[in-house]
Simulated assay, not measured.
Amino acid sequence: MNMDRRQTNRDITLGSYDEAEHWFVRLLEPDCPAEQREAFERWRAADPEHAAAYREIQLLWKQSEDAIKDPAVMAAAKRALQPEPQVRARKRWFVPALAAGFAALLLAVALPRWLGAPADPAGTAYATVAGQEQTVTLADGSSILLDTDTKVVVRYSERTRRVDLLRGQAQFSVQGNHAWPFVVHAGAGTVTAVGTQFQVRLDDEVTDVALLKGKLAIAAQAPNGGTQDASLVGGQGLSYDANGQITPIHAVDMQQAHGWTSGQLFVHNWRLADLIAEMNRYSNTKLQLGDASLANIRVSGVFRTSDQQTLLLLLQQGWSIRAQRINGTQIQLLR
């Protein structure tokens, strides 16, 4: 049962399972250096998915250790690895022993593969600063459009195409290859595509996913190791939080989704506080509300993400809001 559940999860989070397997084998070595163990702890703490994958590898190992203590299991394993031509009479213990021995056989066959398999590459980082956008073309012809103040790490291997979104927002245009899945790791979950175009945004506690065309599979990991799954078709979106909870699927505002890729914000009845927070992502000069009563003013319009001054003029003319510069990087809004 655990084996089946692990395989199901592996289809979605293959990169994490592969990394967990490699770490487990390294830590089994008696002369594993302290810096390797420290690196492992950093890896495990970096993502709840890492910890969950490692727990499942530990569980599999524990089941195997228990199995190989049974002489009947070891005999079944030996016969499986070195079959004899004669047909033997079945004994009553053979079927359960073979089932239990499968975990032991897995170690006999799979551990050498884990030890000899090449590790995933360290990855290539791409990042933008406030007010900057960048398009990265990848080796397979896929591309990533990085929004302002965004960072990704790309790790391509023979098994998977992996991208870690560490902050910000990005649009992914993926070349299809069913045998080579494209997996974005963001927050507490993964987004798996074949050939499609989608956007992922990482905020403090919430990850937003918007699918422009194609299909996506999403898996969100809870701290206790549980997983919630969802799938999207073009024009749909969802969010998931740090606890692995996925929201109901909703229709994507396509105008807004396409807007930021051309430097525009399409604002429909936004709170002023939300508009200010979004505009601040694109500038080193930050706007702040000096009067709490301004927060819930409703604003609609189309704004250039690079044009903070026009926004200030519109606020002063339309809502009698006064802009007061505090210093070189802060502007306060008052009535």
Rank of each mutant, 00 (worst) to 15 (best):
P121R: 07
A110Y: 02
Y126M: 03
A127M: 05
V109D: 03
A104Y: 15
A130V: 03
A130F: 01
A127Q: 09
G123E: 06
T124W: 08
G116P: 00
A103Q: 05
F102M: 13
T128D: 04
G101W: 11
G101V: 11
R113T: 13
A108G: 01
F102S: 13
P118C: 11
L106Y: 08
D120N: 10
L115F: 05
L106P: 01
P121D: 06
P121L: 11
V129L: 14
Y126T: 03
R113A: 14
L111N: 02
L105R: 00
A125N: 00
V109P: 01
D120Y: 12
G116L: 09
A117K: 13
V109M: 07
W114L: 05
P118M: 15
L105M: 01
A125W: 04
L111K: 02
R113N: 08
A104I: 08
A125K: 06
L115T: 05
A122S: 12
A110K: 03
A110Q: 03
V129T: 14
W114Y: 08
P112L: 14
P112D: 08
R113W: 15
A103M: 10
W114G: 00
V109H: 04
T124S: 13
F102H: 10
P112S: 13
L106G: 10
T128Y: 12
A103I: 09
A117Y: 06
A130D: 03
L106C: 06
A122F: 08
P112M: 15
A125D: 06
V109T: 11
V129K: 10
A127S: 09
A110G: 04
L115Y: 08
L106R: 12
G123P: 06
T124L: 14
G123D: 05
A104W: 15
L106I: 02
V109I: 13
A127I: 03
A130T: 06
L106K: 07
L106A: 05
V129D: 11
P112G: 09
A122G: 11
L107M: 07
A125I: 09
F102A: 14
T128A: 10
A110W: 00
A125G: 00
A104R: 02
P121C: 11
T124M: 14
T128M: 11
T128S: 08
A127R: 07
V129G: 08
L111F: 04
